[in-house]
C-alpha cells in the first residue's frame, strides 16, 4: 500500500490541477492548476525511477547500495525546464490580458466574436 501512495498522490495532483483549470475562473489560479498537473506528472516520472532505499544517481564512485534510475530524473529535469518556460510565457500573457481587459476573470475576456 505504501508503495502505491505516490501514484495516488499523482492522480490526486492531476485531478486537482484539472479541477482548477476547469472550474476556477481566475487566470492565475488556472495557471496554478496547470503547474499542479505538471508537478503531478513530474512526481510520476520520479516515482517510476525510484527504488526502495536507493541513492541519487549522481555519484561517479558510488558509496554503495542501489541507485535510482537516472533516466526519469533526466526527463524530469527537462520537463521542469520546459515547465518554467511555459509558466513564464503564460504569466507574461496574463499580464497583457490584464492590461487590456482590467480583469483576470476568464469569463469576461472570452466571447467568440469581436
Amino acid at each position: 500500500m505504501i508503495f502505491n501512495f505516490p501514484f495516488i498522490a499523482v492522480a490526486a495532483l492531476i485531478i486537482v490541477g484539472l479541477y482548477a483549470v476547469v472550474f476556477r475562473k481566475n487566470l492565475i489560479k488556472m495557471i496554478i492548476g496547470i503547474t499542479i498537473i505538471e508537478s503531478g506528472v513530474n512526481l510520476f516520472l520520479i516515482t517510476l525511477g525510484y527504488r526502495e532505499g536507493s541513492i541519487a544517481p549522481i555519484y561517479t564512485s558510488s558509496p554503495g547500495g542501489i541507485m535510482s534510475l537516472p533516466v526519469p530524473q533526466a526527463l524530469t529535469l527537462t520537463s521542469i525546464v520546459i515547465g518554467v518556460a511555459v509558466l513564464a510565457l503564460m504569466l507574461s500573457l496574463v499580464i497583457h490580458i490584464y492590461r487590456h481587459y482590467n480583469t483576470l476573470d476568464v469569463r469576461k475576456i472570452g466571447g467568440d466574436e469581436e
Partner: peptide, 17 residues
C-alpha cells in the same frame, strides 16, 4: 453550435476532459 463555442478556455479544457 455557436453556443458551444464559448471562447472560454476552461470550457475547452472541459471538452478535453
Amino acid at each position: 453550435l455557436k453556443k458551444m463555442h464559448t471562447g472560454n478556455v476552461s470550457d475547452y479544457v472541459l471538452w478535453f476532459v
